[in-house]
Design a protein around this nucleic acid. Structure first.
Lengths: 161, 161
DNA sequence: TTTGAATGCGTGCGCACGCACATTTCTACT
DNA sequence: AGTAGAAATGTGCGTGCGCACGCATTCAAA
């Protein structure tokens, strides 16, 4: 039973490993835009006022929270976003999409979406696609926050060292 | 239509980003075994004579072909595999599972499988799991080899120059 | 046999990524 | 007000990873 149980997860790992480089290269070749940048621009474009704090970005985009800081630095250096400080909470820092950033994103989106369609969506039925989205959303909702497992053992307590 | 089309892929990316660190940590906490090591041990254990060449390992396991070399070095230093040369083709190098490696893998397997079950499989129905495995297998079979897209355009190769 | 291309592999190098820690600012409680 | 703790962010550092390249070997053709 283990074999069939693990099949879905194992295949997911392989698809990710095989497809991400392909989509990343296509996007870079067409728009000179790394996938990480695209993801950040996407979330900013979707957010109200095209503005998000670093923490929100780290939570919404597929980027580590600590990494967001440097990615935003790079994006700001490229003129695609601006750093702003929040007058109501001077700890937090906002990243806001610039016009150039929005235009760059809108140019890149069709490329990326087309890649997803050609390599991923077109290979399955609409029903399969919906099933995947639904099932994986349930998985995502139940995954523990952070890469946690700080207490002793993963499965057995195993208190003593 | 784009939104729902991309949903499956986007969720896959998030699940991967969220779950891989969790499973990796659980495995490391319980067995001091990185996921990459586990994957290599798994393929070796499944292979005939517990032996595979570097190229085969790179193709079967979720590890870059060039990275295999260093991973095998580390595994050999840990006594879990041995490096052997192929007398029939002196270019190739074999990695063979040792008894210690096999034992280590067999100890780790239940931990990893249980993690997959708790965080992934148990969150969906058996039908959903089968659908995911089947659909993603189709995607995998159609993905272009290598991270390719060397020629100019991203979409059509267009044979003639 | 000789020669050129192809295959399999290992390594130097640079990049991306996340962790642990320090810093600044906010919040709650006395 | 004053203080301890929490929250949000930025940074030094080590690590994993893949690419470009070079070396050894094998195959194919002349």
């Amino acid at each position: 039973m283990s074999d069939t149980d693990v099949a879905a997860w194992a295949t997911l790992l392989r698809v990710h490993a095989a497809l991400v480089p392909v989509l990343d290269r296509e996007l870079q070749a067409a728009c000179a835009l790394p996938l990480t940048w695209y993801d950040v621009l996407l979330e900013l474009n979707y957010a109200p006022d095209c503005r998000l704090s670093m923490g929100e970005l780290g939570q919404k985009a597929v980027v580590s929270r600590t990494r967001v800081s440097r990615v935003v630095d790079a994006l700001a250096a490229a003129g695609l976003v601006t750093r702003e400080s929040n007058p109501d909470d001077r700890r937090s820092a906002y990243a806001t999409l610039t016009d150039a950033g929005r235009e760059r994103f809108r140019a890149a989106a069709p490329i990326y979406l087309d890649g997803i369609r050609r390599h991923f969506t077109d290979r399955m039925t609409a029903g399969e696609s919906r099933t995947i989205a639904g099932a994986l959303a349930k998985v995502l909702a139940a995954v523990p926050p952070g890469g946690a497992v700080p207490p002793g053992g993963a499965v057995p307590p195993a208190v003593t060292g």
